[in-house]
Amino acid sequence: ITTSWNGKATSEDVLFSLVIRPTADADLSDIINVSSRYTAAEAYGNGNTMNVGVNFSNGEVAAAGFEMFQNTPNPFAVETLIGFNLPQDAEVTLTINDASGRVLTVLRGDYAAGYNTINVSKSQVQGATGVLGYTVTAGEFTATKTMIAVK
């Protein structure tokens, strides 16, 4: 579900409700989470940016965790965007490999907690085409996906 709301609210206000009907036994905290895949999962108050989480009736709050998203566009000819979510500020390393495992590029940077993106151009992958692998590493978190570069 993608949503955005702009206005004033108190901690007692209900902005929206969600009714979930289970089809199997599971802990909600294991199957429901907040993601910045389409809309940044953040709130603003007193000039500060805050993370958004889900508050379950047992008092447990599930905050947005580490997540890496599929690059867009995919396939790409000129450049592509790799998005990821960080649970806290971290140094991030993006490594891109060709199909044989040869490292084409390594990009490093410091990123803030929340949703971030890295723009990758065709020149940064040495003009390679075909299936490429990319890995994002942030502290103890690592995720790998594949993308396709075309001529």
Rank of each mutant, 00 (worst) to 15 (best):
T146N: 15
Y115E: 06
I148A: 12
N58Y: 12
G53V: 07
T49H: 07
A24C: 07
D98A: 03
K122S: 11
Q88I: 13
G101W: 05
T142H: 06
Y111R: 05
F141K: 06
P73R: 00
I96T: 04
K151Y: 09
V106Y: 01
S100E: 00
A9H: 08
S36N: 05
A63M: 11
V120L: 00
N48L: 08
G127A: 04
N97S: 12
Y44L: 11
T72F: 12
K145I: 04
V136Q: 00
D89G: 07
D98Y: 04
M68N: 02
N55E: 12
F76P: 04
N71D: 03
G45Y: 12
I32F: 15
T146Q: 14
N55R: 12
F16D: 10
W5M: 11
N46V: 09
E79G: 12
D89Y: 06
T142I: 10
F141Y: 15
Y115I: 11
I118C: 00
L86K: 01
N51H: 11
F141L: 07
T80Y: 02
A26Y: 09
A77D: 08
V92R: 00
F16A: 10
I82H: 02
S123L: 09
D30M: 05
N58G: 09
A90S: 15
A99C: 06
A99Q: 08
K122N: 04
G83A: 12
A77I: 14
S36G: 15
Y111M: 06
G83Q: 05
S11V: 08
T72V: 13
Y134R: 05
A138C: 08
S100C: 09
K8E: 14
N58F: 10
A62K: 15
N85A: 15
T129H: 06
P73Y: 04
N97V: 13
E79W: 07
A43I: 07
D13V: 08
V131Q: 01
N58R: 04
T39D: 13
G7R: 03
V103C: 06
N74D: 10
A128V: 09
I148P: 01
V54K: 00
N55Y: 09
L81W: 07
N33Y: 11
G127F: 03
Y44C: 08
N97E: 05
P87V: 12
G139H: 01
S57M: 09
Q124I: 04
D27R: 11
T105C: 02
Y134D: 01
A24S: 11
G83D: 06
G109W: 04
K122T: 04
K151N: 15
N6M: 08
A26S: 08
K122Q: 12
T146G: 14
I82T: 02
M50K: 08
K122V: 08
V120M: 03
V150Q: 10
E140G: 14
V34L: 06
E91F: 11
W5L: 10
N97M: 10
L81R: 13
E91L: 11
T95F: 03
V78I: 14
M50G: 10
D25L: 13
I118T: 01
T93F: 00
L94F: 03
G109K: 01
S36R: 02
T2K: 14
P75N: 02
T95K: 00
A41T: 03
G83L: 05
A24K: 13
D110F: 12
S29F: 10
G47Q: 01
T49G: 02
Q70D: 15
Y111D: 01
N46H: 14
S11H: 08
V103S: 08
A143P: 05
D27T: 13
V92E: 03
Q70P: 10
V61P: 03
A62Y: 06
T146I: 13
S17A: 13
